[in-house]
Design a protein around this nucleic acid. Sequence first.
DNA 1: GCCTAAGTGTACGGTACCGCACACTTGTTT
DNA 2: AAACAAGTGTGCGGTACCGTACACTTAGGC
Lengths: 249, 249
Amino acid sequence: MAQPLQAQVKNRILAALPALEFEMLARNLVHIDLALGETLHRAGDRIEQVYFVESGFISALAVLSDGSPLEIGLIGAEGVAGVSIVLGATTSFSETMCQTGGGAYRLPAVALKAAVAHAPHLRDLLLRYVYVFGVQVAQTAACNAHHELGQRLARWLLAAHDRSGVAELSLTQDLIAIMLGVRRSTVSVAASTLQRAGVIRYQHGRITIIDRVGLENAACECYETVAGEYRNLFGEGPPHIAPAEVVAD
Amino acid sequence: MAQPLQAQVKNRILAALPALEFEMLARNLVHIDLALGETLHRAGDRIEQVYFVESGFISALAVLSDGSPLEIGLIGAEGVAGVSIVLGATTSFSETMCQTGGGAYRLPAVALKAAVAHAPHLRDLLLRYVYVFGVQVAQTAACNAHHELGQRLARWLLAAHDRSGVAELSLTQDLIAIMLGVRRSTVSVAASTLQRAGVIRYQHGRITIIDRVGLENAACECYETVAGEYRNLFGEGPPHIAPAEVVAD
DNA sequence: GCCTAAGTGTACGGTACCGCACACTTGTTT
DNA sequence: AAACAAGTGTGCGGTACCGTACACTTAGGC
């Protein structure tokens, strides 16, 4: 398991670091494959490792005492799972799990904490990421209270599309329903509406985004609000980015 | 307007600082009175000042594009409004406004940024506060999706009670309805249920908490989850703190 | 090809809250 | 004391989603 070359790293935080700071981490970065459904952090457990996502995306979930999880944010190649250790947290409030299969660079939490103390660019980037992720969570709170499932579903699909970079996602309605905190049958109705409108297509755990613009029109404002914050994270992007390149909502 | 003496400061972050670090801020701290309904930061505006709350409490609101606000978090004497500048943000995502009347120490954002660079305890405390506030927001997202208004109302009243430290609050059902993102008439029903149960009493914009334990029983788990995080913020408190002393959810 | 599990469509009574309206009560102003 | 604004209780049709159940379709293993 050789050290990664920064030029080959897809994670945008790692890629944006000055070479010197990247080298501080590189020794401890281990590339791992993420299986579909794999849990990275369990709610309440110590954060031993952090994960710089390379491909696929990760859900951060709040787990209520009755055991029902609910998604509070998505993490893709723009981010890190377990980043709250840079705020001084030692345990994980949320559960983080991979929804798609993918890859990530794993780094011991202690290594990140140590590096942050001597790598100002890394620290600033991570703190800015914390901020943007916080915006995502806050917008989700408002969205959950105010917007209908059809809009929320469209928003979520867009976010998943942005992060995974692929138009065909392996996702069951069952899973989506858990993420959004609604019945599976409710998702079924909303999804078939989107399908009839021709913006998505799906069969048996495979959702394909056909008409991205149509999906954006079907989504609530929350998508664009959060997407704008993410665009600012790594400096201004072009006004319109190809879907697979976008890092958004 | 003399410099504040640290011993007299009620804000828990300022009070917890080493004397040396407090002195770095003291020159620029200005005590101000917060009027009921006063807005401290407007969504999207630059953060020019931050506010270390001394008394009363402040709501952080997400404002949707249709103009409807929704509360994402409460800030009391345990916290700071505008703290996201320590994450590198320059503008405010949320709107912050005072719900109660109260007081705060105002500090120019640039002064805080400058101090943070040379005051490690201040920086660590602020980052930990950011973390706990984030937990509050995340729990609110889940709560909005899953819990009924009766529970959410009880949770909110407990949080307001903790932060203000007084059992009698000047709050109309109208205001609460906006915070919780529901109709005023829905609050009316839930509130009168709590009143009939004898846990609160209210008339004409004045709510009194009579039975705190009863209120805790009526609230969802979200109260206690977040309260626990806040207890950890300044080190472990005693297992049971007198209501007026609690800094919670 | 057949069997089974996984995934999806649909139905149906029930409930929480919406959206709106209006009457009533309380405190304040003059 | 009268007038008024602010705050609250209540009603009522409408809707989104719950909770649950069941039938149907598709993919994959044998």
